[in-house]
Computed example of a mutant assay.
Amino acid sequence: MNVTRAEAAPQPSEHGGGGNGLLWVLVLVAIGFAILRPRALPDYPKLIDWQTLGALAGLLAITQGVEQSGMLQAAAQRLLARATHLRGLALMLTASAALLSALVTNDVSLFLLVPLTRVLAAQAHLPLGRLVVLEALAVNAGSALTPIGNPQNLYLWHRSGESFAGFITMMAPTVAAMLFWLFVAVWLLVPRTPIALKPSADAAPVQPRLLALSGALFIGFVVALDRHWLLAGLGVVFAAFLLFRPRVLLGIDWALLAIIALMFVDLRQLAYLPAVSALLQAWPIAEGWRAYLAAIVSSQFISNVPAAILLDRYVHDLPALAAGVSVGGFGCVLGSLANLIALRLAKVPHGLREFHRISIPFLLVCAASALLLRL
């Protein structure tokens, strides 16, 4: 590997990604709704998707366990020893993100790859924010291929009656266009330059017992989620860490969980506004390119999963709706829950600015390309 030694760069901020600023914006929006359209207090918890929130809490705890085990640091050292240049590393990370997201969902893919990318950036001079944004784009694109890749696909698949293979065939042209532009973006945004290592520090020793515990909990938690045993799975994860490694629980990004909860509260209240329903009923969005564009635009304001559920009542063109909410995951950070997760896991300063600088142009080219495929 071509390597140059350089001065150490400042470590990423622990509150990067626009994280807590977004949290306070969501708090203010929630207060505004409470004043203008008050609800009984017991109604607010009903707006939250507790299955999603609980799954994220368990995955955040397990990810902390893996990070504190030292395994990611060791894996990053081996990966950097084999990497030849920055663009090749970026292509490998984004391709892995796209492939994994089609198999194990977009969120889980980010929990595996973003912490690794952050550790890579701690050992070498890498554009961390740019790599994580590309990984977020990759999981949104790759997860669109299969019925199990993301929540909106799972919902639309069950509603459609399509076979597993039939759904993949339906989504393949849109996904191909998104992946084409993804790799064009990597080629243009990441230079083919040697990777410059930072001054080496004492490597944290790998803790095999913590790694084994985290791995076992991950497998068990995924099985519990698949069987809809959320509370039991979450109880086992937190009890195990509390008993054996309580410091792991201190590293959980509790602010991210608060952001996700408030997103559900705010965005669902927005989607339920009578003016929104009246607007959707008045617009001719039942099929074709209008349905496709309505799905993209709605996703920018209420995220693509609520957009899929909301528009399912008004849109009768499943391929257009599925393609629209998939492409709608790009653009605004609220377009997909995966975007927020990626930025919070990365902990980079000015993460929101970097994300929108790349994601908005990416949305425009992907939306136009996928639309041309439908005409």
Rank of each mutant, 00 (worst) to 15 (best):
A6F: 08
E7H: 05
A8H: 08
P10I: 05
P10C: 00
P10V: 00
P10R: 03
Q11R: 13
Q11E: 14
Q11V: 03
P12R: 13
P12N: 14
S13D: 15
S13I: 00
S13W: 11
E14M: 10
E14P: 08
E14G: 14
H15S: 07
H15L: 11
H15D: 12
H15Y: 13
G16D: 11
G16R: 11
G16N: 14
G16I: 12
G16P: 04
G16L: 09
G17H: 08
G17R: 02
G18E: 10
G18L: 12
G19V: 02
G19I: 03
N20R: 14
G21P: 00
G21F: 13
G21T: 15
L22T: 06
L23K: 07
L23H: 04
L23E: 07
L23P: 01
W24D: 02
W24C: 11
W24S: 07
W24H: 09
V25H: 04
V25S: 10
V25F: 15
V25Y: 05
V27S: 06
V27G: 01
L28M: 06
L28Y: 04
L28G: 01
L28N: 00
L28W: 05
V29N: 00
V29Y: 05
A30K: 02
A30M: 06
A30P: 03
A30I: 00
A30Y: 00
I31D: 04
I31Y: 02
F33E: 00
F33G: 02
A34V: 05
A34S: 14
A34C: 02
I35R: 07
I35E: 06
I35T: 07
I35F: 10
